[in-house]
């Protein structure tokens, strides 16, 4: 299978404190990988490394997708509060050299159920709406590699379902997805494989079904 991202003996320290070390793994296309681990295990840091937002202190990370095909959806919504939903999307579209007219952007807002609020200042949006706008930004990029850092935080049940449907659709499209979920047990059925960060190492990397049968509950 085509490999989109590979880490080789990756290690990261802040000063003298090691976050993780000797992590080697690969993210194939057309798959969902859950990144699991306790609080403070370094999942978010590992994901920032995958996104190229954080430098490794050891080892290498190699991207086999160009920067424009990398989507990152985290807690932070990247929303400019004084711009409208449409203007926010248009700005990101322009930065990525994409078509930024209303015709192409409105359908995206419809997909995340924000079409009614397209011209509202996004500063007035609830956390869930802002995160859906963030989701629309990621969908706009049609990423080949999609990195999700607890994207469902603060979403209501309906929005969370919408998010999952989009994640599944992205996999169908052939994207490789790495997903930090706050509900591993609930989301594992969607996943193909699981990476478990434990004791600063990659303690498990393999099929999701086998992992869940092992009885580990997160």
């Amino acid at each position: 299978m085509e490999c989109l991202l590979a880490l080789s003996h990756a290690g990261k320290c802040y000063g003298t404190r090691a976050i993780f070390k000797d992590v080697s793994c690969a993210v194939p296309a057309g798959s969902i990988t859950l990144l699991a681990g306790a609080n403070g295990a370094g999942k978010s840091t590992l994901m920032r490394v995958m996104a190229g937002l954080s430098r490794l202190t050891a080892g290498t990370v190699s991207h086999h997708v160009e920067a424009a095909a990398l989507g990152y959806l985290g807690h932070a919504t990247f929303v400019y509060p004084t711009l409208s939903a449409l203007e926010n999307l248009a700005f990101w579209a322009k930065l990525y050299g994409l078509n930024a007219n209303e015709h192409s952007l409105l359908p995206l807002l419809r997909r995340v159920e924000l079409e009614r609020f397209a011209r509202e200042r996004s500063g007035t949006f609830s956390r869930g709406m802002a995160q859906r706008l963030n989701l629309a930004r990621v969908l706009l990029l049609q990423p080949r590699l999609l990195l999700l850092d607890e994207p469902a935080t603060g979403l209501d049940v309906r929005s969370a379902a919408l998010l999952r449907a989009e994640i599944a659709a992205a996999k169908e499209r052939g994207a490789g997805i790495v997903w930090i979920s706050h509900d591993v047990a609930g989301d594992a059925p969607l996943a193909d494989s699981i990476f478990l960060l434990q004791d600063k190492k990659l303690a498990y990397a393999g099929s999701a079904a086998a992992f869940m049968q092992g009885g580990a509950v997160w």
Binding site: A51, G52, L53, E66, A67, A68, L70, Y72, G74, A76, T77, F78, V79, Y80, P81, W92, L95, Y96, G97, A130, R137
Partner: peptide, 17 residues
């Protein structure tokens, strides 16, 4: 500070430029 509100800085860092 415009990029600090919702961490849009990360968004700018991710752009393909």
């Amino acid at each position: 500070s415009l990029e600090e509100v919702n961490a849009s800085r990360l968004g700018l860092l991710l752009m393909p430029a």
